[in-house]
Simulated scan of single mutants.
Amino acid sequence: MKLAAAEINLSALRHNLRRIKALAPRAKVMAVLKANAYGHGLVTIAQHLQDADAFAVARIDEALALRAGGLTKPIVLLEGFFNANDIPILLANNFQTVIHNEYQLNALESAKLDAPIATWLKVDTGMHRLGIEPEQLDSFYNRLKSSENVKPQVNLMTHFSCADDVENSKTKVQLNKFTQLVDNKNESLCLANSAGIIGWPESHNDWVRPGLMLYGVSPMQEQVGAHHGLQPVMRLTTRVIAIRSLPANEPVGYGGRWQSKHATQLAIVAMGYGDGYPRHAKNGTPVMIRNQRFGIVGSVSMDMITVDIGDNKAGIAVGDEVEMWGPNLPVEEVAAYADTIPYELLCNVTPRVSYEYVDKNQA
């Protein structure tokens, strides 16, 4: 019996890319594939995003894995390089690098290269994580433009901190600040992440860089992907491995954090934090069995979760499939029960979960 499994729907993936292009029709698409393509499988996902204009990753090992997998599209290192010794590797593999600090700029200017490298200059407009200060823009920009190690076009970018909330004015402030800073520079601009694509059309500009929404998940607060015409790419499933009868007033699981109010039946399913399911998912977090929702009860264990199936009128039996999240149960909803975000759930799926790549249309 196949237990914990992640079904990755490549048809849904391509649908989501088409949806992104429809939302930002004048922009090129930089598909973000960092963190193993948000837990979906780096190389395989990239191989099925051939209509994207470029790929973006966080670190050089991810970029090298894409090249080793036969991907030839432009690849942007969103965090840039961390060591000057990596610069020749960037050139040899035709990687593009973000420049966001003085060390990177100095190292790139000083490198001995046979050809120039494409760059993206990142400005901090309010995220306060990576990026040069706004008052540094002209200096960095001019130095990059004059360096023989840098291709003539210096792309400009920033990152939104609150774009998932359309009521928050911070995004408008960041957008206005960036627009003013780059007003006299005729370069390609990239501002919009997934939330920017959906919530802030004025930020689309030349490039958009979707991450979460590629995988069918909403980046917006208190919404699910279906609200934006997206289809979930991952369907995480397992199986029922036991049915138990529980008398009234009996605890379940480690710490006895849930106690039955009346006699009930339990389905024990083969899934736990060892598979990446959130340990702190609350009592009542839904799962789908036989097209019905049931709530988990008790603590999530390493290998097992207990589900209250009541009088079991549904006829649930050992071997039945359990959908933990997917087309019938949005991962956004599960994340809310676990006091986390869907990004974390998708990225935390562990290697012991078997992956199956399918190509089928969703209803």
Rank of each mutant, 00 (worst) to 15 (best):
L3N: 07
A5D: 06
I20M: 06
K21W: 01
A22N: 05
A22S: 09
L23V: 09
L23N: 05
A24C: 10
R26K: 15
A27W: 05
A27P: 01
K28E: 06
M30R: 09
M30F: 00
V32Q: 05
L33W: 03
L33A: 04
T44W: 06
I45Q: 01
L49H: 03
D53L: 04
A54F: 08
F55Y: 15
F55A: 07
V57R: 07
A58L: 14
D61N: 13
L71H: 03
I75M: 08
L78R: 05
E79S: 10
I89A: 03
T97G: 00
V98H: 05
V98F: 06
H100G: 09
N101P: 04
N101Q: 12
L108N: 07
K112Q: 14
A118S: 14
W120R: 06
K122R: 15
G126V: 03
G126R: 08
Q136A: 04
F140N: 09
Y141D: 05
R143I: 00
K145A: 05
S146W: 01
S146H: 12
Q153K: 03
V154E: 04
M157K: 02
A163F: 01
D165A: 00
N168S: 02
Q174H: 10
L175T: 02
N176E: 14
K177R: 13
E187I: 03
E187D: 07
L189P: 07
L191W: 04
S194R: 09
E202D: 15
S203M: 07
H204L: 11
H204F: 04
P210G: 05
V217N: 02
H227T: 12
H228S: 05
A242P: 02
R244I: 10
R244N: 13
E250S: 10
K261D: 14
V269G: 01
A281K: 02
G284Q: 03
T285L: 05
P286Y: 12
I289Y: 08
R290S: 07
N291G: 03
G298C: 08
V307Q: 08
G310V: 01
N312I: 10
K313I: 12
W325H: 13
N328I: 00
V331C: 09
E333G: 00
E333N: 06
D339M: 12
D339P: 00
Y343S: 12
V353D: 09
K360Y: 09
Q362D: 11
Q362P: 00
